[in-house]
């Protein structure tokens, strides 16, 4: 394995070469395509605050044997921003792995629509696919739509997805209030907790700290 390469921007196309390891830290869901060669290993982290108008299409193609992509997306949605994207993950070769975890907190009139199309082709024995999309609705006007789709054309694979939409847990809120926190503090803490459960999986401490700070500023 070569040295990890950090990428913060790419236009339309990104190719991660054979046996290369890369870390990609973006501020949006790109309208483009990532191709992963043999045993390529990409960690993709997106920290998103600004929305966009049209729906985007983002493709992750694990084209060759052993290609791997771990994708963590944080959406801090506010104002009347719209966050709409179709993410297509293609497992085209044996032992490929594409795992994506999305956490979205939505306030004001923010709307988030994520369609995940996870495909496992006939040629992808031993593929490992995972997609999750969890949404926390923080205002009366916020809206969420999620379609975690799976298309699986062979067996001997692992595939799973999960999705949830909910609001701040009243019981947890009550608990924090009973401990002497005021409501704003308590809510902020619970929102931080919601994101922290993914932030803690980020190995790069610097990036993790940037996200933590953004989450703290999100509601203030």
């Amino acid at each position: 394995m070569s040295q990890t390469k950090t990428i913060t921007k790419f236009k339309k196309v990104l190719v991660v070469g054979a046996n290369k390891k890369a870390l990609c830290f973006l501020d949006t869901i790109p309208d483009g395509k990532i191709t992963l060669k043999k045993n390529a290993d990409l960690t993709l982290i997106c920290l998103i605050t600004e929305g966009w108008e049209d729906s985007r299409k983002f493709i992750i193609n694990a084209k060759e044997r052993g290609a791997k992509c771990d994708c963590i997306i944080f959406i801090l949605g506010k104002n009347n921003f719209s966050y709409s994207a179709k993410i297509e993950a293609i497992h085209g070769a044996p032992n490929t792995q594409i795992r994506a975890r999305i956490r979205a907190g939505l306030t004001d009139q923010a709307t988030c629509h994520i369609e995940g199309d996870w495909k496992i082709e006939k040629t992808a024995k031993g593929a490992n696919a995972y997609f999750s999309h969890h949404t926390l609705l923080l205002s009366d006007e916020a809206k969420a739509k999620t379609s975690p789709n799976l298309e699986i054309k062979t067996d001997d694979i692992k595939a799973g997805h999960s999705a949830s939409v909910g609001k701040i847990d009243e019981e947890a809120l009550f608990y924090l209030l009973s401990r002497g926190l005021d409501e704003t503090q308590a809510r902020a803490l619970l929102v931080q907790g919601f994101f922290e459960s993914e932030i803690m999986n980020i190995q790069n401490e610097k990036i993790a700290e940037i996200i933590r700070t953004s989450v703290k500023n999100f509601l203030s």
Binding site: K122, K125, T135, L137, L138, S139, D140, A142, K143, A144, K145, T146, S147, P148, N149, L150, E151, I152, K153, T154, D155, D156, I157, K158, A159, G160, H161, S162, A163, S164, V165, G166, K167
Partner: peptide
């Protein structure tokens, strides 16, 4: 290996006071 399985769930939520959960395994 010749068989195929697809999952197309859609959740369209316009209210915050809700608890929606979805999970799938293949």
């Amino acid at each position: 290996p010749a068989s195929r399985s697809d999952t197309y769930p859609t959740m369209d939520i316009k209210e915050k006071d809700v608890a929606i959960a979805h999970e799938a395994t293949v």
